Computed example of a mutant assay.
Amino acid sequence: MHGNGRHEGGTAPRVVVGVSGSLGSLAALHRGVAEARERGAALVPVLAWEPPGGEHGYRRSPCPPLLAAVREAAEQRLRDALDAAFGGTDPGVPLHPVVIRGEAGPALLHVADRPDDLLVLGRSGGPLRRRLRRSVPGHCARKAGCPVLTVPVPELLHALHRLESAHRRARRHPSAGPAREALAAKR
């Protein structure tokens, strides 16, 4: 599972999928399998990881045992994501998982480095998460040397985010929202 994802001299088509373990990345894995089947390509699921505090922080205060633990945790996250996506079954296409050290966007572009690669990414997280972190799909779409396919968030995830938002509003303002409506219906 280690490696940089590059296949020197390889000409077999590849579908590279960014994996984080989120529902959006699991949807991207499923779409990646469909694309790999259609193209007769290998599926390359990629999970990028960084040391705690980022590369700059690690250079200032290196700790090899911590780095090894974080790398092992990233490998386990990728195994867990593949198990969640495929239920422990063979996806039916050649599978070459890669765990790579680096920021997600640049790391994915490092792996999906051929013009005939297809980079598949899912969107995940709510609007707040997207505001706090740089958009990996946006970065990759701007800088990739291959086609990039962004898979939309599953509709169920949209419903979950709406429900969570309503629940947060109701906790902040108990006099508003569904609880108030329920009381009004009883009157």
Rank of each mutant, 00 (worst) to 15 (best):
residue 43 L to K: 07
residue 8 E to Y: 06
residue 49 W to A: 09
residue 58 Y to F: 11
residue 142 R to G: 01
residue 142 R to V: 10
residue 37 R to E: 13
residue 16 V to D: 00
residue 159 A to K: 13
residue 171 R to W: 12
residue 120 V to Y: 03
residue 25 S to M: 09
residue 139 H to I: 06
residue 182 A to G: 05
residue 70 V to M: 13
residue 113 D to N: 13
residue 175 S to W: 06
residue 155 E to T: 11
residue 154 P to Y: 12
residue 126 G to E: 04
residue 39 R to W: 05
residue 52 P to W: 10
residue 127 P to G: 15
residue 121 L to P: 00
residue 174 P to R: 14
residue 8 E to C: 04
residue 46 V to M: 02
residue 52 P to M: 11
residue 146 C to K: 08
residue 156 L to C: 09
residue 123 R to W: 02
residue 10 G to W: 02
residue 56 H to W: 10
residue 63 C to M: 08
residue 88 G to R: 11
residue 152 P to D: 11
residue 44 V to S: 04
residue 24 G to Y: 02
residue 116 D to S: 13
residue 132 L to I: 13
residue 149 L to N: 10
residue 155 E to G: 07
residue 94 P to S: 10
residue 94 P to W: 08
residue 176 A to P: 00
residue 166 A to D: 06
residue 166 A to C: 11
residue 123 R to Q: 11
residue 180 R to Q: 14
residue 64 P to I: 09
residue 11 T to P: 00
residue 17 V to W: 03
residue 155 E to R: 15
residue 112 A to I: 05
residue 178 P to Q: 14
residue 47 L to Q: 13
residue 128 L to E: 14
residue 60 R to Q: 15
residue 97 P to F: 12
residue 101 R to S: 01
residue 106 P to R: 15
residue 142 R to T: 06
residue 46 V to T: 09
residue 126 G to S: 14
residue 140 C to M: 10
residue 173 H to P: 01
residue 48 A to H: 06
residue 104 A to L: 05
residue 47 L to A: 09
residue 77 R to Q: 14
residue 125 G to W: 05
residue 64 P to W: 02
residue 48 A to P: 01
residue 123 R to A: 12
residue 18 G to L: 07
residue 20 S to Y: 08
residue 123 R to T: 15
residue 18 G to R: 09
residue 114 R to H: 07
residue 139 H to E: 12
residue 181 E to K: 12
residue 110 H to Q: 13
residue 5 G to Q: 09
residue 89 T to P: 00
residue 56 H to S: 12
residue 97 P to N: 09
residue 11 T to G: 06
residue 17 V to T: 07
residue 156 L to E: 14
residue 93 V to L: 04
residue 91 P to T: 04
residue 158 H to D: 15
residue 87 G to N: 08
residue 102 G to N: 03
residue 171 R to C: 14
residue 105 G to I: 08
residue 144 A to F: 02
residue 104 A to V: 12
residue 101 R to W: 04
residue 145 G to R: 15
residue 69 A to E: 13
residue 120 V to S: 08
residue 133 R to S: 08
residue 64 P to Q: 13
residue 134 R to W: 04
residue 27 A to H: 10
residue 146 C to M: 03
residue 85 A to D: 04
residue 119 L to I: 12
residue 143 K to Q: 06
residue 54 G to R: 01
residue 81 A to Q: 01
residue 170 A to L: 10
residue 99 V to R: 00
residue 102 G to P: 02
residue 93 V to F: 01
residue 31 R to V: 11
residue 72 E to Y: 07
residue 38 E to P: 04
residue 110 H to D: 01
